[in-house]
Design a protein around this nucleic acid. Sequence first.
DNA 1: TGGAATGATGTTTTT
DNA 2: CATCATTCCA
Length: 760
Amino acid sequence: MYLEDLNEEQRLAATHISGPMMVIAGAGSGKTRVLTYRIAHLIENGVDPFSILSLTFTNKAAKEMKGRIGKIVGELESKNIWMGTFHSVFARILRIEYQRINYPREFTIYDAADSKSLIKSVIKDLGLDDKIYKPSTVFSRISGAKNNLISPAEYAEDADIQAEDRSSGRPRTAEIYQSYTTRCFRSGAMDFDDILYNMNVLLRDHNDLLHKYQHRFHFILVDEYQDTNFAQYLIIKRLGAVHENVCVVGDDAQSIYAFRGANIQNILNFKNDYPEFSMYKLEQNYRSTKVIVNAANSVIEKNKDQIQKTVWTHNPDGERILVHKAGSDNDEGYFVAHQIFELKNRNHHFNKDFAILYRTNAQSRSFEEALRKLNIPYRIYGGLSFYQRKEIKDLIAYFRLTANPKDEEAFRRVINYPARGIGKSTLDKMTVAAEEHGVSLWDLIEFPAQYPFGLGAASMNKVAEFAMMIKGFRAMMEKKSAYDLGQHIANSTGILSDLYSDRTPEGVARYENIQGLLNGMKEFSELDPDEENPSISTLSDFLIDIALLTDTDQDDGDDDKISLMTIHAAKGLEFPYVFIVGMEENLFPSQMALNSREDLEEERRLFYVALTRAKTRAIMSYATTRYRWGQLIFGDPSRFIMEVDPSFVDRSDLTGGPSGKSKLFGDFGSDRQKFFKKEIANNPGISGKIPVKPESGSGVDGDDFKNITAGMEVTHERFGKGKVLSIEGENDNLKATVFFPSAGPKQLLLRFARLKISGV
DNA sequence: TGGAATGATGTTTTT
DNA sequence: CATCATTCCA
């Protein structure tokens, strides 16, 4: 009997049938198991799988959980559960109810790159400066608004929001939001946030639909509840309002997505919404050694905001956490690769037993290089994923245009790729005309007579030809499988031959990537059609599938590889051996997080997540120098290393003396780096004293910045006047924190900032 | 109009 | 150091 696998508290939670419930689950305490068994238990007790809605953090997690439930209750039952990420489940519902919100059935889902590109174009059209209105900044502002269900109109009317935008120097953000929304709608496109936003609109404005789904979902389960935002919270609240069988599972100590609107308050609100709820606390850790569990506890203790709980384990003590100091980022890569090599040979481990976790994607490079040299297979999750590569995006843009020709971003991407003589000036004319008539670019070329846009006959012909081609693809959509149509599009647009003609290694790789995409489509097309959803293998369903892939979803088979990923991406995963690398101040914790206690606490939770991924051993490393923007910078060990209770840590970085390069791999550093180091050795001025007090008259032109001290008033080309709060670093790496009324606090490398002293 | 050359600019984290 | 975007020339 499967329930025997559970401890007392887990069993109570898993056999809870009706009524709201919350599970606070410490790291490694078996919450997935509880969720799995609870769903299986519900089904065994006669609950219809179609009436269970289960929201997970990744699609992969959903797939795995479905598989495990299937083992208990049978595949026939388990496959009918509504299970997936918030985004994929609700996109599916929106795809059914599209008419209510006046979207096309085949609406496109914009990824962040599409959104930013469209926002950039909006900013340009409004005649604003994209140096001030930076697309990524504006985008996150809009995203924040949507996550809190603030419409463009409400945004424009909200006094606080307007005050914020004014003080940040971007008073016209509301206009951008409004226009961005219009253009998305006109393109038949939703961005990630719109999926949640529109789902809320659907449930708010259409009572029949609210009832329909409230009655459909008798049981709702939400995993990783600490990482839900307001829009998600409200969907759950609305859907659960009739049956109130809402089960949320989470761990406040692992909340790491506040930056994208996640709100721990949702956990606290739960008891207001459902005063009668049952609470289960899972505190026994089954994953990690005592050392790891206790070390993690000693870290998270430092946070002020948390729900009290004690995670403990029966597991063996295990080894202390090793800390390694590396001389450079390359040496760090070496150290880790070499350690893995050794550990593997000594203990006959698989590659997949190891993970390298870092704070930012950009850190992966040195580990890749080192692993490659040692011939250790690895896999990078996240970063520049397959679907973000140029050639893939190009082909997919054709697919998107075929499914939904109004899709403006796709249209712009391929209207002249492969080159067909439709250049910038033509596109500009079309953009103006489209804006004038309030229609999409496609409407324009579909009915050119209706919307004259002043093109010459030659251009007109080319445009018409393009429209014909897309119409041709559209006509095949119903008849052909995703794979067949994909193949046809790749061929007839000339993309395949264009890439094939490039025989450079990169060109060959691009060609192979396209083949890879087509193979993926083949697999997709051959999947068993779902009875609920018979059209599963159309091109547009393929598009939904890939638009909402999460970073850890991609799976290139049963491979035995080292995992490289950000700590964020590692959430929910576990590995016997975990390397937490780049443990340096300003990197982890990120320097962006040093301004407030809340931000720092989130970083600390991130560190907690990193540590608790490890089953048998955790190893930390930091580098004293590292290249950043092609600049050599110096780093100090992260404060987080010191925050771990010392009895769990092996500080061999302090006793082992200077850790030069390993002799075995002495030639690893690049020539440029050696050159740089030599320069330091020959020029004491570079690594020498800190100019505390500027000597008068020492101000050689280019060295003026060395005279800047805290408290001064300075002027920056772009940010205008500001006040210097503090100075750190030395000589060429002098860094100032300057507060600009126009832009807030900024960290500037004085060497580049070209600050002018305007007062003391 | 298209391609090459040059120059600015940026690093959290992600659905 | 990359990548991207803009610019400049054919």
